[in-house]
Each structure stands twice: as C-alpha cells, then as structure tokens.
C-alpha cells in the first residue's frame, strides 16, 4: 500500500512538472502581460522599466527556471498587480473553493445516490421517469442560469438567502446547490444504470431466493457492488466541480480560487495564474489518489499491492 502511494506521489510530481510547463508558457502565449499591466499613457521607456523590474525582459527559459526554483520552496512570486505573494492569495481562496466543491459534492451525492437507486429498483415507475428527467435536465442546464434563477427565487422574491458573498452562514447554500445539481444529474444516471446491471446478477437472485429482505438485497448486496463505476465517475466529476466552480463563484461572488484565476487571467497577472492553476492541479491529482485508494475499501478484490 505504501509503495503504491509513493509511486502515485511520484506520478503527482511528474504531473505537476508538466502542468507547470504548460501553464508557464500558455499564460505568456496569451500576450505580453505588460500591455495590460501599465496604463495606456506609459511611454516605451516606462514600459521597458516595468518589464525589467519584473524580470520579464529575460529569456523565457531563464524565467521558467527562476520560477520553478522558487516554486519548489513555495515561493510563487508576487502578484504583479497587487504586490501580495501569489501563494498567499491562492491559499486565501483555496479553502473557499474546496468548501464549495465539498458541499456541492455532498449535496450531489445525497440527491444522486437515493434517486439512482430508487429509479433502478422501481424501474419504469414515475420515480424512474422523474429521476431520468432530473438527470437529463440537470446535465443540460447551464449552472450560471440555474444560479441566477435560484437568486431570483430565494433572494429577490422570497428574500431568505443572500445573493452573493460568503459572509452569511447560509450564503453557501445556493452556490453549492447550483454546482451540486449538475453532479447529481450525472451520478444519478450512472447509479441507476449500474444498479440495474447489478440487480440482474445471479448473486442478487440468490440473495432474494434465500429469503433476504428487499432492503438488505438492494443496499447490502447490490448497492455496494454497483459503486465502483460510480466512484470512478465521482472522482472525475470532482475535477469538473473544481472547474465548474469558476462560473458559479462569479455568479454568486463566492471568493474562491476559480474566480481569482479568472481575474488574474484577465489582467495577465501571470504569477497568480501560475500559482492558482498549479494548486488546482495538485488538488485534483490528490483527490484522484484518494478516490483510487477508496477502491480497495469498497471492493476487497482490488489489491493495491499488486497495482504497485
């Protein structure tokens, strides 16, 4: 197990290295950061002075190695537009994004799992149709649109929830529900199909013929065995949640990492973009590692020692 984790951590380092290369060069491909950093009235001389002050006059490769060397010590440089350490800005926001993504995932699972299981068990009943309709609608509905509709209902008309920010304890509800709905739709559909497959297996028939109660058959025998594809999809969807949070954070003015990155991209604050995207990547890879580790817990047939 330890060998497996170490090996995966090695992969993580390699992945982060590749991501750092891509991010470093991509943010520079978008254009000269100086062109949006300085006021339009700057002369060429003034622009050159700013470029030198921020080390942007050096060859790209040299800039990358300076960046990589510092990043290894946790120093991602200072935000060009605010002077604040980029790492500090990222860490300030990362927590809010993880909180949002975590609660969204929880809401998504709380809706999706029962809905998917019930739809499979009561196939071709109104429950099944309702779940399928929800899954289709939830997948098709853009989350910014759902977010605005929720704001109209709960903030503008009912006036029971704050429309923006993170100060109020209930401010998380609408963004988390908005983000969680898309996840719930995907997972519900997958849970339903996975359960339908498992419910048709011989061992389920055997369990029933032994006279076990339907609840035990469904939840203890069928459900657990239907979880592997669901967990795989869930792990991938968590990445989608992190990405999706960018839009939802903007709609609800949620002070998360996604919004920070978008703001930084718009003004080509390259140090913040680099730090933010790398942390997104690290978070995503770590989540996937955790998901992989849970396979062994769910399904004893999976031996991580052999995988190592």
């Amino acid at each position: 197990m330890q060998t497996y984790i170490l090996k995966r951590l090695g992969h993580l380092v390699f992945t982060i290295f590749i991501v750092s290369l891509i991010v470093f060069f991509l943010v520079r491909l978008k254009g000269d950061p100086i062109s949006v950093l300085v006021p339009p009235t700057f002369t060429q001389e003034q622009i050159d002075a700013v470029r030198v002050a921020w080390g942007l006059d050096r060859p790209l490769i040299e800039q990358y190695f300076v960046f990589a060397r510092k990043a290894l010590t946790g120093d991602f440089g200072r935000s060009i537009t605010s002077g604040t350490p980029a790492m500090e800005l990222v860490l300030q926001r990362l927590g809010a994004t993880l909180y949002l993504a975590g609660l969204s995932a929880l809401i998504g699972l709380l809706i999706a799992i029962p809905a998917g299981v019930i739809a499979a068990v009561r196939r071709n009943t109104p429950w099944d149709f309702l779940t399928t309709a929800f899954a289709t609608l939830g997948t098709a509905m853009p989350n910014f649109w759902l977010g605005l509709i929720l704001i109209l209902i709960f903030s503008v008309n009912l006036r029971v929830l704050p429309a923006y920010g993170a100060e109020h304890p209930l401010a998380i509800l609408m963004p988390a529900f908005t983000l969680g709905t898309g996840l719930a739709a995907q997972i519900a559909r997958l849970t339903r199909s996975s359960m339908l497959e498992v419910l048709g297996q011989d061992y389920v028939r055997t369990a029933r013929s032994k006279g076990l109660g339907e609840r035990i058959v469904v939840w203890r025998h069928a459900f657990r065995n239907s979880l592997i594809p669901v967990i795989t999809a869930f792990g991938l969807q968590l990445g989608w949640l992190l990405g999706g949070s960018v839009v939802v954070e903007a709609v609800f003015a949620w002070p998360g990492l996604g919004r920070l990155i978008i703001e930084a991209i718009n003004v080509r604050d390259i140090t913040v973009v680099q730090a933010g995207v790398l942390w997104f990547a690290i978070t995503f890879v770590l989540i996937n590692l955790i998901v992989d580790l849970t396979y062994a817990v769910i399904d004893p047939r999976i031996d991580l020692r052999r995988s190592a």
Binding site: G147, L148, V156, R159, P162, A163, Y164, A253, E263
Partner: peptide, 19 residues
Amino acid sequence: YQVIPEQASQIAALLAGQI
C-alpha cells in the same frame, strides 16, 4: 465594497435589497 463580478448578480442583489 463587495466584489460581485456578474452584472446580472449585482442587479439581483440590488433588487433583493442586499446592496
């Protein structure tokens, strides 16, 4: 000064009496 990037959200918050 409350940062709300989306204009539709700003207007909704104003209509809701929150800004």
